[in-house]
């Protein structure tokens, strides 16, 4: 697949814009973990009419990869659910756009993508966490119909302000795989296979320690909400001896185990993201452009309207620099010891 300079520019511009819009959205309060407005989809919608099908899929894939990588969820079940959601949304929008041509506008393409994404995410979550997650389907699809309509309206109204040609983004950085990053892969396999709660707890604590040593911010709220919701969802399908009103022993133990797996994988994924991998090629260029947009949004002076205008026109100063891996040896030690204990147990 060869890219023309123009297509490459459009992909870099829209992928970085989509990432920035997601960051903008993460500033808004999240009422329920699963339900999101999906502002990042706006930039993808603009790609529909401008890129051929294969390149539109490339745009969506880049966006998923980089957002999962930066959020540190790439290797966790969240990343898997996100991948299913992104893929379903991308294919649904592309399919309907190709079938109906320009007779369908953002007003219906956006809700279609949003609902496909929601259904796919729940399906994957129900496989990983608990089948009772599927009970959320009506609520999720209703919410996504509304949120998809909102983002579709924004996409329609804001498109006139979009400047695609945002100068060159040709700063390339070489790829760098470190042993520390590779160490995470066996650990993730061990976590997925482990079933003793104390082993999972150990792996979780080791991964948290690794995040802490790397100086990555640990968000206790994220872990607490994940764990509690997995346990609650499992309690909804009772099994085993009744301990208290609706709590059964089997479901509780199962919930705790699945919750610990999710916590460990999330923490390991966060630790992986702090392993000093640098992306090269197209992903690297998107990240550079994204860094510029974020600077335009958050670091430079101006009213909110002025910041949004800079975001849409793609202006901004590259602040440069990146996080280098720190304290690699203690992290390798902590993770290796945890892996060995888990293997012996």
């Amino acid at each position: 697949m060869s890219l023309s300079t123009e297509e490459r520019g459009i992909i870099i511009r829209l992928a970085s814009l989509s990432l920035s819009l997601s960051v903008l959205e993460s500033g808004l309060p999240h009422v329920i973990p699963f339900l999101r407005l999906g502002l990042g989809n706006i930039a993808l919608l603009w790609g529909l009419g401008r890129l051929p099908g294969a390149l539109f899929i490339l745009l969506c894939a880049l966006r998923w990869l980089l957002s999962a990588f930066m959020a540190g969820t790439l290797l966790s079940p969240y990343g898997l659910a996100g991948l299913a959601g992104s893929a379903a949304s991308c294919l649904a929008m592309l399919l309907f756009h190709r079938l109906a041509g320009k007779r369908l506008s953002y007003y219906s393409l956006s809700p279609l993508g949003s609902m496909a994404s929601g259904a796919a995410q729940l399906l994957v979550s129900s496989l990983v966490l608990s089948t009772s997650v599927m009970g959320l389907l009506p609520l999720m699809l209703t919410f996504n119909l509304a949120s998809g309509l909102v983002t579709g309206i924004i996409a329609a109204k804001a498109e006139a302000h979009l400047v695609l040609d945002a100068g060159d983004a040709s700063t390339e950085e070489g790829g760098r795989w470190t042993g520390l990053a590779l160490l995470h892969i066996p650990l993730i396999i061990i976590t997925a296979l482990a079933d003793k709660p104390w082993v999972l707890l150990l792996l979780f604590l080791a991964a948290l320690m690794s995040c802490h040593l790397a100086g990555r911010r640990i968000r206790p709220g994220l872990y607490a909400v994940s764990f509690i919701s997995v346990v609650l969802f499992n309690l909804l399908s009772p099994s085993g001896r009744i301990i208290a009103s609706f709590i059964t022993e089997g479901a509780l133990m199962d919930g705790i185990r699945k919750g610990l797996v999710l916590l460990s994988l999330t923490a390991l994924s966060q630790s992986f993201a702090a392993s000093g991998l640098r992306a090269g090629g197209l992903p690297g260029q998107v990240l550079t452009a994204y860094g510029r947009l974020n600077a335009a949004l958050f670091q430079e002076e101006g009213s909110f309207k002025e910041r949004l205008r800079r975001l849409m026109s793609g202006q901004g100063q590259d602040k440069g620099g990146g996080d280098r891996p720190v304290r690699t040896m203690p992290r390798v030690l902590v993770l290796t010891v945890a892996a060995l204990i888990a293997l012996i147990a």
């Binding site: 529909l48 320009k102 007779r103 369908l104 953002y106 007003y107 219906s108 809700p111 309509l149 329609a156």
Partner: peptide, 16 residues
């Protein structure tokens, strides 16, 4: 058939 994907069509309303 409209040129502009930012304008709702009848088909949009049917899909919604």
């Amino acid at each position: 058939i409209i040129d502009d994907m930012g304008k709702p069509s009848h088909l949009d309303i049917i899909i919604l």
